[in-house]
């Protein structure tokens, strides 16, 4: 069952198209990471999902319903962690918990307190006086306390030190293990989420360049390094079939990031003698991301 979906979503600010015909779906229990450079449109998409903004075209759906129209009832089952902790600065964690408790059908007060104690977050200090990491923990705890079906996290580790980052993801993983919550997150911390996400979407300039399972992505992306036989490395026979994304000349030869790797095509390249001593290495999610968005841009209709 699809917990979260957008269909042909478009968002406009004046003349600028922040999102252009974006479609993706997240099934129940999955962890989805939406990646993109700043200004790619991630926040606009999250805003549409949370009913904060009305799309110029297309639809956003959570639990099959329209978050703009049914925001309040949908959010009763959604935990939201925004990019900037925006709880009222004068309220303490205890007061925040009491305030939120009255709004949700269920509220795990004890679990929230235990979590905050575990991370040594003072519960009677005004929110505004907490450190950035503590604020993040409070926001996450508030999002987890109503036992939501869906978690939406907008860059939850922005500005946090490595320890705080670990604790945030640790809580998230615990939640996943205990309750199988569906997670939709945007992030720049690709290394940290690499182990956690099932599915990845990459936004560039408002367009969704790819929307794929991480495993499959990692299967088909490789970095090749070889010494080209001919002058034009890009035209090395056998290379085109591997769908190169970026080809760069290095001192010792050529490095190419390819998106269509499989063993057969690689052995064709190897045997084609156009490439001397080809080596192949895998790419981390961050490297894949950089290769995809680093390109000037896909041609019309072209996918990566």
């Amino acid at each position: 069952m699809t917990v979260l979906a957008v269909e042909e979503l478009a968002v406009r600010y004046g003349d600028r198209l922040a999102l252009d015909d974006v479609s993706l779906a997240v099934p129940a229990g999955a962890v989805y990471a939406l990646l993109g450079l700043n200004g790619a449109g991630k926040s606009s998409l999250v805003r549409c999902l949370l009913g904060e903004q009305r799309p110029a075209a297309g639809r956003a759906r959570i639990f099959g319903r329209d978050p703009w129209k049914e925001r309040a009832s949908i959010l009763a089952e959604v935990g939201v962690v925004p990019e900037e902790p925006d709880a009222p600065p004068a309220m303490t964690a205890r007061q925040l918990s009491r305030f939120c408790a009255s709004l949700y059908p269920s509220w795990d007060e004890a679990g929230l307190r235990e979590r905050l104690e575990r991370f040594a977050v003072p519960q009677d200090l005004p929110f505004g006086r907490l450190s950035k990491g503590q604020k993040g923990q409070v926001m996450l705890s508030l999002a987890l306390a109503p036992s939501p079906r869906l978690l939406v996290l907008d860059d939850p580790t922005l500005g946090l030190d490595p320890l705080a980052r670990r604790s945030v993801f640790g809580e998230l993983i615990g939640e996943l293990a205990d309750r199988g919550t569906t997670v939709f997150l945007t992030t720049h911390d690709l290394a940290a989420v690499e182990g956690i996400v099932d599915r990845v979407g990459i936004l560039k300039a408002g367009k969704l360049l790819l929307d794929e399972e991480l495993e499959s992505l990692k299967r088909r992306f490789r970095r090749l390094s070889f010494a080209p036989a001919g002058e034009d490395a890009g035209r090395t026979p056998g290379l085109a079939e591997l769908a190169p994304v970026a080809v760069a000349a290095r001192g010792w030869g050529v490095e190419a990031v390819v998106s269509g790797y499989d063993e057969e095509r690689f052995s064709l390249l190897r045997s084609g003698r156009g490439a001397g001593a080809p080596e192949v290495t895998s790419l981390s999610l961050e490297e894949i991301f950089l290769a995809v968005v680093g390109r000037p841009g896909p041609a019309q209709g072209e996918s990566v």
Binding site: E52, A72, L75, A76, V80, P82, D86, P88, C100
Partner: peptide
């Protein structure tokens, strides 16, 4: 100060 988002991210009617 962009703090209204806190309320709108909760199940609170506008």
């Amino acid at each position: 100060e962009r703090r209204l988002g806190f309320y709108f991210a909760r199940p609170l009617a506008g």
